[in-house]
Amino acid sequence: MPRLDRSVGRDVHIHDANNTNVALGGLVLTPGVTNANLYLMVEILVIFTNTFSLQYEGGTKVEKDDGPLQPGKYFIVSAGSFNVTDEAFLVRTISHATGTRVASFCESVRSRDRKCVISGLNIITLGGIDIWDGFEASHIFPLAYESHWINNDYGRWVSIEPPRGGTINSVQNGILLDSVMHQLFDNYFISINPDDNYKVMAFRPNARGIGSHHLDPGYFARPDAPLDSVLRWHFRQAVLANMRGAGEPIFEHDFPPGSDIVGDILHGPRAAARMESELFGRLGAQVELFHRAKKA
């Protein structure tokens, strides 16, 4: 099957003013993206040694304001040197939190949110029983990379530790999403920018028309709310995935019966990293049971 490319449909292109023929990256423009948003994303995408500004193709300076971003070419102007960052990107696949070590995580996220935080879709209560069909307690920082979480001491951000499962399973690393939003979130097609009043950024159009709106800041003021630092990490990953160079690969996740899933992964881009993420996402609960059995 054809492989999707994050650069398809880009109508915003970012260039070095001193080397206008080579694009450093770009963006598929969606409603609500502002000039100030572009400045912030360029600061993630590029490492500068001095201050910088952006110019339109005609040489006019782009103001760092809330004016709507326009399609076209944008040029970075700086008195110092700069380079596109080589910051690591963590390949991510659609994940589902299952198993006993994440049970308290799911319960805590459900109890706190009771609706999709991004779409606003509410759960249904029937006969006093909450119906959770189509809603998923989602890790902001992926559970598949717990070793990365531990090695970089991201647990230092957490103030509410779960009864089991480690700090990565804190409610502060979780968010309740409906299944569509979960797919978009895990694929880095949507993200929440805590540094722009919790604005939902869409990095490509979606069928729901989700993006550009601000979430309730009161929700994020709760002591058990998702952490700004974790949301900021996810937003950085979304910028790197979608804007750097030609963008990171988009992986197929809806395999029809009889598909050679392993073959598709092994012959595709980022095979080793994707295999690791897929195995944990699909077999996480079984892996946990295996390790428990070994210890018994």
Rank of each mutant, 00 (worst) to 15 (best):
S111G: 13
S111W: 05
R114L: 14
K115G: 10
K115C: 15
V117G: 01
S119M: 13
G120N: 07
N122G: 07
N122R: 14
I123F: 12
T125N: 11
T125G: 07
T125L: 06
G128T: 12
G128N: 10
D130N: 13
D130R: 06
I131V: 14
W132E: 11
W132M: 07
D133T: 14
E136M: 08
S138N: 08
S138T: 15
S138V: 04
I140L: 09
I140V: 14
I140W: 09
F141S: 02
L143A: 10
A144M: 12
A144R: 05
A144H: 03
A144D: 05
E146Y: 12
S147E: 15
S147Q: 15
W149V: 05
W149D: 02
I150Q: 13
N152L: 11
D153E: 15
G155Q: 14
R156T: 13
R156F: 10
W157T: 09
E161M: 13
E161W: 14
E161F: 15
E161T: 11
P162D: 03
R164C: 12
G165Q: 06
G165P: 10
G166Q: 04
G166R: 03
G166D: 10
I168F: 06
S170N: 05
S170A: 07
V171G: 03
Q172F: 09
N173K: 05
N173H: 09
N173R: 06
N173F: 07
G174I: 01
I175K: 02
I175T: 03
L176A: 07
L177H: 06
L177K: 00
D178Q: 02
D178Y: 06
M181F: 10
M181W: 10
H182M: 12
H182D: 12
Q183A: 15
Q183M: 14
L184E: 06
F185M: 04
D186V: 03
D186N: 07
N187E: 13
I190H: 02
I190G: 00
I190D: 00
I192H: 02
P194Q: 08
P194K: 03
P194T: 08
D195P: 00
K199E: 11
K199R: 13
A202G: 06
F203V: 03
F203P: 00
R204M: 13
R204D: 07
R204Y: 12
P205S: 09
N206K: 06
N206W: 11
A207N: 12
I210F: 10
I210K: 00
G211L: 05
S212H: 10
H213W: 07
H213L: 08
H214Y: 10
L215G: 09
L215I: 08
L215S: 11
P217N: 11
G218Y: 13
G218A: 12
Y219R: 07
F220P: 01
F220V: 04
A221V: 02
A221D: 14
R222T: 09
P223Y: 12
D224L: 02
D224F: 01
D224M: 02
L227T: 01
D228R: 09
V230L: 14
V230C: 05
V230P: 01
L231I: 10
R232L: 15
H234Q: 14
F235C: 00
F235H: 15
A238N: 06
V239A: 03
L240Y: 12
L240S: 00
